[in-house]
Simulated scan of single mutants.
Amino acid sequence: MPVSRIAIGSSAEASHPDALKASLAEFISMVIFVFAGEGSGMAFNKLTNNGAATPAGLIAASIAHAFALFVAVSFGANISGGHVNPAVTFGAFIGGNITLLRGLLYWAAQLLGSVVACLLLKIATGGLETSAFSLSSGVGVWNAVVFEIVMTFGLVYNVYATAVDPKKGDVGIVAPIAIGFIVGANILAGGAFDGASMNPAVSFGPAVVSWTWNAHWVYWLGPLVGAAVAALVYDVIFIGQGTHEQLPTSEF
């Protein structure tokens, strides 16, 4: 079972140059991703007089997030593994592919990167609001949790299939493209209901800068549960005990 491979890590890991470089890579990738993704919504609102919630706005958000995530994952792939998402990091931890301490470093870098990106957007746009994620009218918190679980399951399952599985071969650029595509597709599926976060850091930055925390817990609980289920399902069924290989620290 992958749970048996969960590791805490050593205290020296927190100051190891490789771990610090990987965390910096996660920070930079997250700034790039959130600045482009959140910024696309702000730009669409400005150009269409608050039309980001329209079908055209949803398509624009899907494309912007897919492209930005593809680039952000590619940037970090050879340094940190290109998680760019606390849920992906949590899924890697559940599968025994990253230690707890290294994962916490990634989380800190990812959350800080999202906040910095939103602050930069607020400064660059002359104080425009970086809107926090929220539930659409008629969508309950548990409906949104289910959405986030299912969408994040698809994302992390994709990560395991294209980047973690030791049988994947040399997929090269395929993994970042597939990861960007599934996020873009999920935004089309769930964006009209709860914003389709799939990423606690993406929700955290706008919430901090706008200081809006309504139902914010949804965007943590759903992605973390979905990530854990995806990691367990893929590892147990498709990787198995006999074929599992611990990934080098330069990846996950």
Rank of each mutant, 00 (worst) to 15 (best):
F75L: 12
T99Q: 07
A87S: 09
A66C: 14
G82T: 01
V84D: 04
S74T: 13
W107R: 05
G96Q: 01
L69Q: 04
G81C: 11
G95T: 02
Y106Q: 13
G96R: 01
P86K: 07
F70H: 05
A87H: 01
A56P: 00
S62R: 11
A87V: 04
S80D: 04
I59Y: 12
V88W: 10
A53M: 09
A53C: 02
N97F: 12
V84A: 06
G91A: 07
N97K: 14
H83S: 08
A60L: 09
A68M: 01
F70C: 14
A68V: 02
A92W: 00
P86T: 08
T54C: 10
V73A: 01
I63G: 10
F67M: 13
F70L: 15
S80A: 06
A108S: 15
L58A: 11
I63A: 15
I94Y: 01
A61Q: 15
A77Q: 10
T54L: 10
A87N: 02
G103D: 12
Y106D: 11
G82E: 02
P86Y: 05
N97L: 10
G91Y: 06
P55S: 08
V73E: 00
H83W: 00
N85T: 08
G76K: 07
F70K: 00
R102M: 05
A68L: 00
Y106C: 11
G91I: 08
G57Q: 09
G76S: 13
S74Q: 12
